[in-house]
């Protein structure tokens, strides 16, 4: 297995943007070190030969947990909207979005 490129400060800055985190330059530097050490640990694990083991899809040894298709009561709208920062026309009011209408 080839070594992944080391984590750069640019990678951390990009992840911060995706996660809507405002990081200072000092924080970016600090987290770059911390994240690199976590990824290093993952790389150690990836180096092991696990080809004989079954993939763990989920920590619980369960699958096919299903419920019947039966309608249950929804919440009261007034109660729901009372928790919203802003409301208009019985809907959640949010800042301008650039994107599709759907």
């Amino acid at each position: 297995m080839s070594e992944p490129a080391p984590l750069s400060a640019d990678d951390v800055a990009k992840v911060a943007v995706l996660a809507r985190l405002n990081l200072t330059d000092e924080e970016v530097e600090r987290f770059t070190g911390q994240l690199a050490s976590i990824l290093g640990h993952a790389a150690d694990l990836a180096a092991l030969d696990l080809s004989t083991l079954k993939v763990t899809e989920h920590p619980l040894e369960l699958s096919n947990v299903l419920r019947a298709d039966e309608v249950r009561p929804s919440l009261d709208r007034a109660e729901v909207l009372s928790q919203a920062p802003a409301v208009a026309d019985d809907r959640f009011l949010v800042p301008q979005i650039v994107g599709e209408e759907g």
Binding site: D89, F92, L93, V94
Partner: peptide, 8 residues
């Protein structure tokens, strides 16, 4: 648009 409204 200045604002959007959402129906869930």
């Amino acid at each position: 648009a200045d604002e959007s409204i959402v129906d869930y």
